[in-house]
Each structure stands twice: as structure tokens, then as C-alpha cells.
Design a protein around this nucleic acid. Structure first.
Lengths: 198, 198
DNA sequence: GATAGAATGTTTACGGTGCTCACATTACCA
DNA sequence: TGGTAATGTGAGCACCGTAAACATTCTATC
């Protein structure tokens, strides 16, 4: 059962992050109480402070795990997208991650990014790099920075609008269809540019 | 001075919302304490409960005001956009609203939308309708629903990425340029689509 | 105009929270 | 074996959201 009771607890920092993620998935709400996490991990309310400076630090660690899991999901959706269709597939995976783990996703993005947290910064940088690579393959002639920004923003915005109930997120297939339609509509917008391709 | 000291307080519900928005703008953080709001308004901690069921209800009222102010800003940027350039102008106004009033913006979007709050639902619906009208004028041949969704998501996503420090938001002009570049890159993406618009 | 009742604000109190400090325990190293 | 640093505990502070009982003030009716 318990992997290694060598320490007092074993590996409390990791156990706390695990407990936090479990709580987020169960209660669905973003409220992450340090005391509740400690309870869940079976330690006293003060124990976490031996490993995390404050609540925010633990939250950042949780967010970093979230970024990695999101990245895994995206890679699983398509290992190396290079067409608009594959990009849409990745976008759908992104939004469905947000819908399936709403509390975790909110923790990842709703709070101001703690620039002092290296783990977190690195994880988001990796995500940005991943998007950039997709964009470079899919639209080799475009300004990669500008387009990568736009694509990430588009997908991210879709995720938030669905998450916030501003769009109909009743079933995963509905969401998938709408996302595909939205992205395709945007990519097609200028092709119908009236008065020539200005 | 005081408009109407007819009641005990005058108009406590509005005063609370005002106090809340002031606090949000000052402290910059999303943390909105009901007690702090009550203090600011000069009433006891329990007074707000005569007008708002709970903290969440007050937050929703604040968010609704935020939606209206955002809408005003967008209209001020351009009353009735009908070209991509004008749309970019509105997008810049949207993001700059988020950057200038980060805490308010987060309150508006970071928490799950309370569907029971009519004021809030109506305000977001108005915003969606506004975006839809722009899209219909600017891209008359596109699927309005899909494209409106995409455009809102794009702009909204840009706002969040800037707000979260994922993108360089050092100066307003830098932000404005990058937003214009990002949107234009996306709108231009398919014109270079290799092998036809599959 | 007096007065009953509704509306509004206060006081007090409870449990929960983040966080700190002094203390206990355990692991590790000389 | 012992000393020291790492780790976990307990008590306690100030704050929070919220509720109940109480006080005040507005309003409507006789």
C-alpha cells in the first residue's frame, strides 16, 4: 500500500498536490482550502507550511501539474498536428480538458500567474511552445508569433466561454461540432472578403 | 450631496456594489471580502445580507455592472464596427479593459456563471449579441453564430492570456500592436492555405 | 397624527480559513 | 551514540461568511 514510509509521511509535497487535485475533481469548485488538503493527506493544518510557503505556492504546484496533464491530452489528441483539421482536433481536446476538469483548469488560469514560481512558468512556456510548433507546421507562411498567439487565444477563449456557461456545453459532441465550426468560420472569414482579397 | 437620506442608508445595495468595485480597483486582487465591502460602505458586516442572499449574489451584481461598463467601452471604441480594422479596434478596447480593471474582469469571468442571476445572464447575453452584430456586418457571408463565437473567444482569450502574464503586456501600445497582428495573422491564415481550403 | 407592521441595520456568535510560533518527533550524519 | 536539521503537531491569532436575536426607522392604515 503505502509506497515508502521512510519519512514522516513519505512524500508530503507530492501527497498534498495529489490530495488537492482529488478535492478539485470531487467538489467541482475552485475553492481549495489548505486545511482541507491537509486533512485529506492526513496531516495537521500546519504541516503543508514545511513544504509550501503559503496557499498560493501549493496552488501553483497544482497548476503546474495541470499544465502537464493538459499537454499530455493535447499530444494524445494528435502527436504532431500539421493541418487545420488536426489543429481543430487539438482545440477540441483543449476545451474538453477544461470541461472535464473545470476546477483544475480554473486554478491554472483564473488566478494571476505567479512569475516567481519556476515550475509554473516553465509549464506554460512549454504549452506556448507546443502551440507555436503546431502553427509553424500548419501555416508555414504566416508570422509564427502572431498566429501562435491568436490560435492559443482562440482555443483558450473557447474553453473559458464553454466553462462559464456562455456557450452550450450540453454534450461533448455538440461542443466538438461547434468548436470545429467556429474555427473553420474564422479561418474562412477572409476568403469571402468582399471587394477582393484585401 | 447625499441624494436621498430617506432610508437608513440611502441605497445600500448600490452603495455596496460601488464600494466593491472601488476595492477591486484599489487592491488589484480578486479577493472580495463581504466584510471589507460592508466596512467600506460604512455598515455592519451583516447589513449586506438584507439585500444580497450571500457573497456570491453581491459578486454577481458587481459582475453585471462590469459587463455594462465593458459594453460601454466597446461601443466607445467604435459605435458600429463593420470592417476587420474596426473589429480590431474593439478587440483592443476589450483587452485593455481587462488590463485596466483586472480584478473586475476576473470577477466577471473567472467564477462559474451564476445562471440564477438574471442581471448577469442578461448582461452577458447583451455582450454576445453585440459581438454577433459586429460579425454580421463585417463578414456578411459567414455563419454568424459560428463566427461570432470564434471572434468572441479569440478576443476573450487574448484578454486572459495578457491578464495572466502569458503574453507581454508591458505597455498599452505594445499590446495594441500585438493584438492587431494576431488577429490579422489569423484572418490571413487560410488565404495562404496550402492545397486548397480543405 | 398615532400606531402597527414591514423594512433595514446592529450585535453577538459559530465554525471555517490562512498563517505563525513554540514544541515534539523523526531522520540522518559524524 | 549523540547532535542537528528536517519534519509534523498544537494552540492561537485575525479574518472570513453567515445566522439569529435585537434595535431602529420607514410606511401605511385608522
Amino acid at each position: 500500500m503505502s509506497p515508502k514510509p521512510t519519512y514522516h509521511h513519505g512524500d508530503l509535497p507530492a501527497a498534498l498536490v495529489r490530495a488537492a487535485i482529488e478535492l478539485l475533481q470531487e467538489s467541482g469548485e475552485t475553492e481549495l482550502s489548505l486545511r482541507a488538503v491537509a486533512r485529506r493527506a492526513g496531516v495537521s493544518p500546519a504541516a503543508p507550511y514545511r513544504h509550501y510557503a503559503d496557499r498560493e505556492a501549493l496552488v501553483s504546484a497544482v497548476a503546474a501539474v495541470g499544465y502537464r496533464e493538459l499537454a499530455e491530452r493535447l499530444v494524445a489528441a494528435h502527436p504532431s498536428p500539421s493541418t487545420p483539421e488536426q489543429l481543430v482536433g487539438v482545440a477540441i481536446a483543449y476545451v474538453q480538458f477544461a470541461l472535464q476538469r473545470p476546477a483544475l483548469f480554473r486554478i491554472m488560469f483564473a488566478e494571476p500567474c505567479d512569475r516567481d514560481n519556476d515550475e509554473r512558468v516553465a509549464a506554460t512556456a512549454a504549452l506556448a511552445q507546443y502551440v507555436r510548433a503546431i502553427v509553424e507546421r500548419t501555416f508555414p507562411h504566416a508570422d509564427p508569433d502572431a498566429l501562435a498567439t491568436a490560435v492559443w487565444a482562440l482555443v483558450h477563449g473557447l474553453a473559458f466561454l464553454y466553462l462559464d456557461g456562455k456557450l452550450d456545453a450540453s454534450t461533448p459532441s455538440v461542443v466538438a461540432e461547434r468548436i470545429a465550426a467556429a474555427i473553420q468560420a474564422l479561418l474562412a472569414a477572409t476568403t469571402i472578403d468582399p471587394g477582393g482579397a484585401g
